[in-house]
Amino acid sequence: MNPEAPNPNRVLVVDDSEFIHELVRARLREEGLQVEHQLTGEAGLRHAIDVQPDMILLDIELPDLNGFEVCRQLKERAETRTIPVIFLTGQSDTAAKVRGLDLGAVDYVIKPFDDVELRARVRAALRTKRLQDLLQQQSFLDGLTGLWNRGYLDHRLEGELNIARRYERRLSLLLGDIDHFKRVNDSFGHLFGDYVIQRIAEALSTHARRSDIACRYGGEEFALLLPSAGIDEAALVAERLRIAVEASPFHLRGTQLQVTISFGVASTEGLDPVTNESLIARADRALYNAKEAGRNCVHICVPDQPGAICSFTDFQSQLSD
């Protein structure tokens, strides 16, 4: 999902006949779409995962994976789930139509197709996709801070883990929790508590790289997902954030209030199995340790020592050893 970018209107055609590729390309020309194609189910699936087109025209009879199986796998994966699929096939029996639609396809067009009808159906599918993206974007935003919410983190983490596995890239996660937040709320009221959360969210956004994903994970908990970053880089980001929060006290009715935050840091390095749950659990354990160690600190899950967690200072000295 990339809601900020204007719709690039990329359409992927998966069909084992080049006659159909050329025909669809010509017939969709006036729609101003970028048409890409693949000849096999495997290649189509890979293409869809890699470039995430805005819609897919999918044949059923393919030389390797059939179209039903391709559709099933597309709908199973977080990163391709919302891409509308239109079956474009010579199979005209009701059973095939029902099966295709029940697998999650939005439409079913029979070959040989009528070009005017195909264009109308493609337009309809793209219209729905745009609304769906907008709706999903709304449902994934945190109202108070404007950061992504926990639902988005779960969704995005699954996709990022797939990418990390496929390309053998690293991926790190920071979990942060405002120290003694209840005290802030109790002493200064919820409105002020909300203000603190907003300010810390800003700090998180400011320190995040463009590719990082900043989320409000819960009440006073934050998460920062760092694609392609290893544990050492993530630890540094956490420490920088911790210092930034510590260095910006709040002022209220002539009083200065110091707010601090603790972080747990984990990465996919040495993680087994690599799942949403296992990575979050790792970061959560590190965060718990940071709280136990007295708060206002960063604790790190050490990748090459299973179960080992250490402070930022120890981690730095280990690195320099």
């Binding site: 006949s17 006659f19 159909i20 025909l23 044949d59 009879e61 010579g90 070959k111 040989p112 197709f113």
Partner: peptide, 9 residues
């Protein structure tokens, strides 16, 4: 099957 799908198009 392919020719069936393409010919009319």
């Amino acid at each position: 099957h392919q020719l069936k799908g393409a010919g009319g198009g």
